[in-house]
């Protein structure tokens, strides 16, 4: 694996997280608990979709096969998608949406901080831009964690349940493989082992503030680094890719 190959895969993974999580949030359009929150969630969806485009444009250039960013998104099969399992979890209820966002945004914040200093100018620029958005996403999600955790009996129960359900998908965020290790040598990738400690501390702090229990670290689900997903992803892609796959010759 060359450095360019590794960087291509790395950008693909970053793009996949953004496009899939963005898609989940976009599903919530007209489904927010009140109008302002509806707009907040779709605004986050918009941020993710925008950064996905930047990651995929770069990935497509690194790949050098003449693909566009859209080709990578709309013509790639499920086994070649590398988003974290957490990002494809269904919305279920507002509690799940917020917990998913919170757990991911804490990770994303530290990741993008690291990548902002990456020895690859293009990646660093995207990270710096995305980090500004992520800080908002994180404060939005963390506020809701506290509001729901300390709100009513029902909101506390629901948000704790979501946390318990989603915890098993958090281990995967910190897995590193050859792609990470090779790029780490070149000062490009983030060291996820270091990140893990930062993530744990910040998550714990917010959970304490929210009066929520941190679930025990049991078995952690894994697979996405190798393109092994839950059954949910296939449905998501079937919907997302439908027009492009039905009319392969058409431009939109």
């Amino acid at each position: 694996m060359t450095k360019t190959d590794a960087l291509f895969h790395y950008c693909l993974r970053l793009g996949d997280d953004a496009v899939i999580l963005g898609h989940r949030l976009a599903e919530l359009c007209s489904r927010g608990p009140f109008l302002e929150e509806d707009l907040a969630l779709t605004n986050i969806a918009l941020d993710y979709t925008g950064r996905a485009e930047l990651f995929f444009q770069y990935a497509a250039e690194l790949e050098g096969k003449g693909h566009s960013a859209d080709d990578l998104v709309y013509r790639r099969p499920e086994r070649r998608y590398y988003n974290h399992l957490l990002c494809e979890r269904p919305n279920v209820d507002f509690g799940h949406t917020i917990v998913r966002q919170f757990l991911f945004s804490v990770y994303d914040r530290y990741l993008l901080e690291e990548l902002g200093a990456a020895k690859d100018t293009r990646l660093a620029e995207i990270a710096v831009k995305a980090l500004k958005e992520t800080r908002y996403h994180l404060s939005h999600a963390a506020d809701w964690m506290v509001r729901l955790g300390r709100g009513t009996e029902e909101s506390h129960r629901r948000v704790q349940q979501a946390l318990n359900d989603l915890w098993t998908y958090t281990g995967e965020l910190f897995e590193m493989d050859d792609v990470d290790l090779l790029l780490l040598e070149h000062g490009i990738a983030a060291d996820l082992h270091t990140l893990r400690a930062l993530w744990q501390a910040e998550v714990k702090q917010t959970l304490d503030r929210a009066g929520l229990q941190r679930p025990a670290d049991g078995y952690m689900q894994t697979g996405s680094r190798k393109g092994i997903h839950s059954e949910h992803l296939g449905h998501l892609l079937a919907e997302m890719q439908y027009l492009v796959r039905t009319y392969p010759q058409a431009a939109w």
Binding site: A26, T42, L46, G50, D70, Y74
Partner: peptide
Amino acid sequence: WITRAPSLRSKMILLAKIQDEGGHGL
């Protein structure tokens, strides 16, 4: 149609448009 928009650009335009409509509602 948001989840079936055929390109990233068209998805973003549609998301932004619907947000505008919600904002007008507000």
